[in-house]
Write a protein that binds this DNA or RNA. Structure first.
Ligand SMILES: [Zn+2]
Ligand SMILES: [Zn+2]
Ligand SMILES: [Zn+2]
Ligand SMILES: [Zn+2]
Lengths: 152, 152
DNA sequence: AAATTGATGTTATATTATAACATAATTGAT
DNA sequence: ATCAATTATGTTATAATATAACATCAATTT
């Protein structure tokens, strides 16, 4: 995924989905939010907030930390991006509609992130938390390592 | 676990284990590091670095951020504590010897953390990353929600 | 004792994120 | 259309988290 051959499609799909979902929810994908989403979707790599801010400044000189963090908040709230907790970084969500308990494969070498859903992992998490009588709220599963492209 | 009835034992065990492991490894559990470890083990709740620093300052007025972060680094490196990535917080490791792929049950209500090992989760993670031809390095699994004590 | 290594002290600064308040744009009701 | 309420953005300041860099001190090795 490091060099995605069909990345224009990825971006277009992501933007289209975001628009659709916003319309359904009655929230607004403003120009700014769309711009930030595009910047995040520049690749499948994770991005840091202040790098994003630097990029945004090239477009809008007046951008400041709250500019970027507000957009990030909106995009996270609506499921269009995810925060990678172990890296304080952000990445586009590849399937905002059907997103459930996903996990992330994070390549230490190329910063590529693959977002996966595993019904199996989901089940195991639910069953083991159940055994602990723990009422589940949020699952953070982030796996770092080396992706296939970088291993070869 | 929120009100651990045998917490003195928890602390003593943690300190004893840390000493043993340090001796085996030939690294030093200095006075400072031991103090920080004790402060972290004050409870099973997670603690923030700067709160820890405030506590340490009560003992040693000259403590500064590097003081605490160096100790945290040492304690993490040697497996005596863990960093909770989703909270930028730290918690004592309940089983530093046999620690493998553990996960954390984090109570949003009482800040208690239970560290668990599940061979089952471990297996599923390995098998699903294998399917993705991903060479695993580090797994971060943090589950937030409400613990049994807080549900009742 | 001198040299090396490891630990701590100290100052400064980098990185990540939010509070607080002002202004502008949009929506919705009258 | 007008006003009020809400939502979004602009702006300044600061909070919270973490590390770099260099000085000093202590322990260990030669
Ligand atoms: Zn792509
Ligand atoms: Zn890679
Ligand atoms: Zn205890
Ligand atoms: Zn609880």
């Amino acid at each position: 995924m490091s060099n995605c051959k069909t990345h224009k499609t990825c971006i277009n799909e992501a933007l289209k989905k975001a628009e659709t979902i916003c319309n359904e929810k009655g929230v607004k994908l403003t120009k700014l939010r769309q711009t930030v989403l595009k910047l995040i979707w520049k690749s499948h790599n994770y991005v840091k907030a202040y790098d994003l801010l630097d990029e945004l400044k090239k477009i809008d000189d007046s951008a400041k930390p709250p500019t970027i963090y507000r957009s990030l908040d909106f995009l996270i709230e609506n499921g269009f991006i995810h925060k990678i907790q172990s890296l304080n970084a952000y990445v586009g969500c590849s399937h905002p509609q059907e997103h459930k308990e996903c996990y992330f494969l994070i390549c230490d070498s190329c910063q590529n992130i693959e977002e996966c859903c595993s019904e199996q992992i989901n089940k195991v998490v639910i069953s083991t938390t159940g055994k602990n009588h723990f009422e589940l709220n949020q699952v953070t599963l982030e796996i770092s390592g080396t992706c296939q492209d970088c291993t070869n």
